[in-house]
């Protein structure tokens, strides 16, 4: 920037202060205007208003599984047989790749025992978000005759993750047990998810 020789130093430094301040204001305005443009992509307040799903389980029999929708996600509900519960209980924690329960109704560090995975006080009932923790596919194993994998639970067809009868990851690339959503029994055979 050209400055004429008649300008004294005081003028130059005063001008620099003003220009730097102006630049600062422009910067603040620019950065502040970016936030609304980014934040608008977050879930909006209608999505944030937690929807709940109520499910009537009275028609279910031991060994049967159903899938319901909650907040756009599939929820696996399995009414496990005694064998399946026993299989879940038999596994020592040390054998599990992921040792925490991933149960939204329990503390974050609760161990991944079969009790901690199943419904409180109703161990045959397993309610979990049916999404493979690897890359988000929906594992097979809900329908009778579909592939339940080596551990009798679920098998993810995308990249071969294997889950046991308590929905815990046992083999394959998935890092975590399938998540348990917040839910509660509102009656003997009724649950409310969310």
């Amino acid at each position: 920037m050209s400055t004429s020789i008649t300008e004294d130093d005081e003028d130059v430094s005063r001008r620099d202060v003003i220009l730097i301040t102006a630049g600062g204001f422009a910067g603040v305005l620019g950065v502040a205007s970016i936030w609304p443009l980014l934040d608008q992509m977050n879930p909006d307040s209608s999505a944030q208003a937690l929807a709940t799903t109520e499910v009537d389980l009275s028609h279910m029999e031991r060994g049967q599984a159903i899938t319901v929708m909650w907040r756009g996600k599939p929820i696996f509900i399995r009414y496990r047989t005694d064998d399946e519960v026993a299989a879940g209980k038999d596994v020592p924690l040390s054998e599990l790749p992921d040792k925490v329960a991933r149960n939204a109704n329990l503390p974050d560090d609760a161990p991944a025992t079969d009790e901690n995975r199943a419904a409180e006080g109703k161990e045959p009932w397993l309610v979990m978000i049916g999404i493979c923790t690897h890359l988000g596919c929906i594992p097979d194993g809900q329908a009778p005759g579909s592939n339940k994998g080596e551990f009798g639970g679920w098998f993810c067809p995308c990249h071969g993750s294997q889950y046991d009868t308590a929905g815990r990851i046992r083999k394959g690339p998935a890092p975590e047990n399938m998540a348990i959503p917040p839910y509660a029994f509102t009656g003997d055979t009724k649950i409310k998810i969310g």
Binding site: W35, P36, D39, Q40, D44, S45
Partner: peptide, 10 residues
């Protein structure tokens, strides 16, 4: 205008 974050402003 109602639900989207900053929607009214945009």
């Amino acid at each position: 205008m109602r639900d989207v974050n900053w929607g009214w402003f945009l």
